[in-house]
């Protein structure tokens, strides 16, 4: 068990190193930031000075090692636009993104799992077919269009819900949260539903397929013949078996949700790190983009690690090896 976790940890470090190298090289080959930064009327001496100040005069591998060293100290450069440490800017925006992603995950899970089970248990019923058609729409609608349509219906036409910003927030431990105020919750609804849609549909399909397969197994029939009630068979015997792949997908999807938050935040002007990175891309604020990619890579590696550990815990066949 410990061995598996340690091996995974080691793999995670390799992944991060690879990503850092990739990001660094891609950024390096994509042009000279000095030309962007230096004022148009700068002399050659001034440009050289700036180059030296930024450490861009050294050979590539030295620059990479320096980049790594700084990264380990939590320094991923200064934003050209905001003149603040890029890491700080991102951490400032991170809680908003996490709040949105968590909300979306919760929506996807609390609706996705029961819908999937219902559709699997009585596949011929009308409501099961409705769920499956709904899930087909769910995976076919592009996230951003769902957002636009929700704004059109609930904000523009009906005027029920706000369509931009976080609304009123409450600070807990110095971090502002929307879900603690009524106004904040109203602001959360549309973006989190938008973000949840695709993943909800995905979970429905996965749970349904898994459930249908498990329900055909001998051990389900044996449980029935033991006199276990249908409810318990579905919610205990079958569910625990499909929870292993489902938790894996939920975990991995959390990463996908974080990534798609980029789109959702742009649509709903949600002040998270996704909107920050899109704005930074448009403003050519490269350190912020690099910092975002590195931080997101760390988050993903951590998520994958946690999913792996959860997996080992849930599946006795692996746990005891």
């Amino acid at each position: 068990m410990l061995e598996i976790i340690l091996r995974r940890l080691w793999q995670s470090i390799i992944v991060l190193l690879a990503v850092s190298l990739l990001v660094f090289v891609m950024v390096y080959v994509s042009g000279d930031p000095v030309e962007l930064l230096a004022p148009p009327d700068a002399t050659e001496v001034e440009v050289a000075q700036l180059r030296k100040a930024l450490g861009l005069d050294k050979p590539l591998h030295v620059q990479y090692l320096q980049f790594l060293k700084h990264a380990l100290h939590g320094n991923l450069g200064y934003s050209y636009v905001n003149n603040a440490p890029a890491v700080e800017l991102i951490f400032e925006r991170m809680p908003a993104t996490f709040e949105l992603a968590m909300m979306a995950t919760i929506i996807a899970v609390i609706f996705g799992i029961p819908f999937g089970i219902i559709a699997a248990v009585n596949p011929k019923k009308i409501y099961s077919k409705a769920i499956m058609i709904g899930s087909l729409f769910g995976i076919s609608f592009p996230t951003f269009w769902v957002g636009v349509m929700l704004i059109l219906i609930f904000a523009v036409t009906l005027g029920w819900l706000p369509s931009s910003g976080r609304g009123e927030t409450v600070k807990v431990f110095g971090i502002p949260w929307s879900f603690l105020t009524w106004d904040g919750i109203k602001h959360l609804i549309l973006p989190s539903v938008t973000l949840a849609g695709y993943h909800l549909a995905l979970i429905v399909r996965l749970v349904r397929a898994g459930m249908m397969e498990v329900l055909l197994q001998d051990y389900i029939k044996f449980a029935k013949i033991k006199g276990v009630s249908k409810k318990k068979i579905i919610f205990v015997h079958a569910l625990k078996n499909i929870m292993i792949p489902v938790i894996t997908i939920i975990g991995l999807n959390f990463g996908g949700i974080l990534a798609f938050a980029v789109v959702t935040e742009t649509i709903f002007a949600w002040p998270g790190m996704g909107k920050l990175v899109i704005d930074s891309i448009h403003l050519l604020d490269r350190p912020v983009v690099v910092a975002y990619l590195m931080i997101v890579a760390v988050i993903f590696v951590i998520i994958n690690l946690l999913v792996d550990i959860a997996y080992t815990f849930l599946d006795p066949r692996i746990r005891l090896k």
Partner: peptide, 29 residues
């Protein structure tokens, strides 16, 4: 009824299946 049958199954009448590898649920002790 199904509920009446449930009380008989595994209680008054029980069954043993062919394949012991598949008749036990792998994720429960």
């Amino acid at each position: 009824s199904e509920e009446e049958m449930r009380k008989i199954r595994g209680n008054k009448i029980s069954m043993v299946f062919q394949d012991p590898l598949t008749s036990l649920n792998p994720v429960f002790t």
